[in-house]
């Protein structure tokens, strides 16, 4: 009886692990999409309204769902904060602080970090160009993540269950 219960537990745990990894893949796609929307709004705030960066980030954060809202709010706080660190460092600190809160891959974060040294440092037309470039790069990652998601999500779910089944067979 206890062996049967243990086997079910191992199977469920492995299945859940696979499902979690699969869910992270789907969540990454959602966050990339939300970031694209946020950067489009930021480009408008900067290019047309010339809203100062901290205010623009806060404004966009209010229209963004979690975890993008938290990231933008943090970035606004770091940039406007009294510590007086350069914008690129403040931006990078906000990206790093977000690592445990979202499911982005390192290549996604690299796109965000690449924007930091240019953010707010040049004229409006140039800022728009940098934001459009970031949007294009995020768009590519988004499309690739979506294409891979169908296969990988199913793969991780099955892999979890299969690994659980294998462990049960080995233990018995």
């Amino acid at each position: 009886m206890w062996r049967l219960f243990g086997a079910a537990l191992v199977l469920a745990a492995c299945g859940m692990f696979g499902a979690l990894v699969a869910r992270a893949r789907t969540e990454r796609i959602r966050v990339l999409g939300e970031l694209e929307t946020a950067f489009s709004m930021l480009a408008t705030e900067i290019g047309y309204a010339a809203t100062p960066l901290p205010e623009a980030l806060l404004k966009v954060s209010r229209h963004s769902p979690p975890p993008v809202d938290g990231f933008l709010e943090r970035a606004a706080g770091e940039i406007a904060g009294p510590s007086g660190v350069p914008t690129a460092e403040a931006w990078a600190a906000a990206v790093r602080a977000q690592r445990s809160r979202w499911c982005l891959a390192r290549e996604d974060e690299a796109v965000l970090l690449d924007l930091g040294p240019y953010l707010g440092q040049t004229g409006a037309a140039d800022q728009e160009k940098h934001l459009r470039l970031t949007l294009t790069r995020l768009g590519r990652l988004h499309a690739r993540a979506e294409a891979e998601a169908h296969v990988q999500s199913r793969l991780w779910r099955y892999l979890g269950l299969c690994a659980g089944g294998l462990m049960v067979l080995l233990f018995y």
Binding site: L53, P54, Q121
Partner: peptide
């Protein structure tokens, strides 16, 4: 410029 050079055109 409060990190907003573009706002100072």
């Amino acid at each position: 410029s409060r990190s907003s050079v573009y706002a100072l055109e």
